[in-house]
Design a protein around this nucleic acid. Sequence first.
DNA 1: CCGTATCCTTAAGGATACTG
DNA 2: CAGTATCCTTAAGGATACGG
Lengths: 110, 110
Amino acid sequence: MLKYKNKKFVCHIDLGMELIRGKWKAVILCHLNDGPKRFLELQRITCGVSQKVLNEKLTELENDGLIFKTTYPEVPPRVEYELTDLGKGLFPALDLLEQWTVKNYPFDKK
Amino acid sequence: MLKYKNKKFVCHIDLGMELIRGKWKAVILCHLNDGPKRFLELQRITCGVSQKVLNEKLTELENDGLIFKTTYPEVPPRVEYELTDLGKGLFPALDLLEQWTVKNYPFDKK
DNA sequence: CCGTATCCTTAAGGATACTG
DNA sequence: CAGTATCCTTAAGGATACGG
């Protein structure tokens, strides 16, 4: 039994999965690997997930140290999200998962 | 936009994550990589998750073709779960995730 | 030992409206 | 454009009891 942030985990993979849990976190991380993205770009990538949900996920990822954001003091506001070094280290695993999926699920487009 | 089993996914990583979503699936898959396990062994590994939940997850993994089970006609019954080839192919990604977690979260034991 | 059924609680996700 | 607030629906997980 292991502990992190007052939560209990039965093993390391359990904790690792916790950090990318939810419908959108892995998707966000994968796309941020290509470079910084603005809020609206991420919303487009996620096919229009609501602002509330997208913000929730971005905040959680930031709190877990996987991404950080830069706010430019302009009008209208501009904010960019990008991976931290910790977040970049997670990419190889996500990349392998994606490759496995592409290989085994050549599924219908549209 | 991609489709699989009547569900929609925004990209491949989205589908890949869907298959290992939930509190226990990745944990089960990782431990099955060491070899076949019985129901009670898996329950012990998951620190006593309820039978209902464990069965749900095992059934979902089986339906997705990641594991299969062998039922031995004995009394008391004996059932063994193990990875399919498809499931084995997923292990490298999970293994990388675990390594990343071990490296970055050397957290408190117990 | 393994699996099912029932009931319950909480967490996740979405719709919408509003603000600087 | 980015973020917050409110409300709502559904999905996930757990407790318990029972049956082959």
